[in-house]
Amino acid sequence: MYLFKKGGVGNVKKKGLIGLILVVIFVVTAVLVGANSVKETKPVPSGERHDISEIVTAKAEWEKVAAGEEGFMEGVNFDREGDIWMVSPMSGELLKVEGEEIQHVEEFPSPVGAKFHKDGRLFMTDLTGVIHAYDPETGESEIAVSTYEGEPLNGLNDLVFDEAGGLYFTEPMGSSATHPVGRVFYLPADSTEPELFAENIAYPNGVAISADGNRVYISEFGKNRVLAVPALNAPPSPETPFVFGHYEGGIGPDGLAVDAEGNLYIAHFQAGEIVVQDANGFTSGTIRLPENAGTFTTNLAFHDGYLYITESSKNEVWRIEVEKEGVPLYGRQ
């Protein structure tokens, strides 16, 4: 008995080939759908793409919020009550603004970056290579992470939570423009074992997540630029790590913040200004600090219609009214 009729084997092979082609088309389509931001074509603008007036109006003026006496203020952010918290690696302090005064709260070895967890704890990177988790309610703290694959971490700098409660953090110490060995790690929620996220970076400083959650922005301080790297939970896409912005003057980008429309705000250290870029990397302009401020722009945060800045040469906190709202942070959820 014949298993196939005349021509049957050919038909089976033909059907198999068609099935394979359909699978390939499906996979390619899925990848392209997940890559709209890369493949999307937009009209070329006839004039300038942006103006800084989209971010700050002509009537907006800088206001000095508070001033400290010593230290090197960084890590400005807000708790749910709207209180300002900061850290100082030079004086080894956790700080809080009370009225117009900056008050000492607690001592840590060398805290640099700070972000609130939604459970109320404040997570702080430290130059000693650890992340502290401090509870403002009890005053107790613990080490959230201190090693990678059993080895101590080098000095840490900045950190940011993603929507799942995972934590990206930077490890710049020992790296530079001529020795680009800095790393960025990811600490999954409820874990003490970080994963390597990016490496071979010339002093990774600030870190932030795009408004859609698909990119991680990293300040490559040693090369005066910001990198954009696909986030671990980003959908499939042909987008690869790339240089998002390159800056003129100063030394390099420090802290980063993102607004709800996807614009990135870069604290440009030793330039005394904030650079603003849209989600496609085009520059809207710069917001320059007032003449009586210093140029050590270190960190920034959004709160109630204002952009807050720490300037570390004079240890001052400034704010300016902006037309955008900051992307909701994990600690305020």
Rank of each mutant, 00 (worst) to 15 (best):
E140G: 12
F123L: 15
D158N: 04
G120Y: 07
S141Y: 12
G165Y: 01
G166M: 01
H132F: 15
F161K: 00
E151D: 14
I131A: 07
E163W: 09
P172E: 04
E171V: 01
Y134C: 07
D162Q: 05
R121A: 14
A133R: 05
G129C: 14
V160W: 03
P172F: 03
G120S: 10
D135Q: 09
G129R: 09
F161M: 00
K118D: 14
G120F: 09
G120V: 07
K118S: 14
L167W: 01
R121N: 15
G150T: 03
E151R: 10
E149P: 06
E142T: 13
A164W: 06
G165I: 00
E163T: 13
D158Q: 03
E163H: 12
L156M: 04
P152W: 08
T138V: 09
S146M: 08
K118E: 15
H117S: 15
Y134Q: 06
G120E: 07
D126M: 10
E142I: 12
E171K: 01
G165T: 00
F123A: 12
I143Q: 10
P152L: 07
D119A: 12
T138Y: 07
K118L: 12
F169D: 00
G165D: 02
N154W: 09
T138N: 07
M124R: 04
T147F: 09
Y134I: 06
H132N: 13
Y168W: 03
G166W: 00
F161N: 00
E171D: 06
D119T: 09
D158V: 01
G150Y: 04
D162P: 02
V160L: 06
A133L: 08
F161V: 00
L127K: 15
V160C: 06
N157A: 06
A144Y: 03
F161T: 00
K118Q: 14
L122Q: 06
T147M: 10
L127F: 13
E142K: 13
E140Q: 14
E149W: 07
D126S: 13
G129P: 11
V160A: 06
L159K: 01
T128A: 15
P152M: 08
T147D: 14
F169R: 00
V160E: 05
L167V: 02
V130S: 11
P172W: 02
D158L: 03
N154L: 13
L159C: 03
S141L: 09
Y168F: 05
A164I: 03
S146L: 07
G129T: 10
L153M: 12
N154I: 08
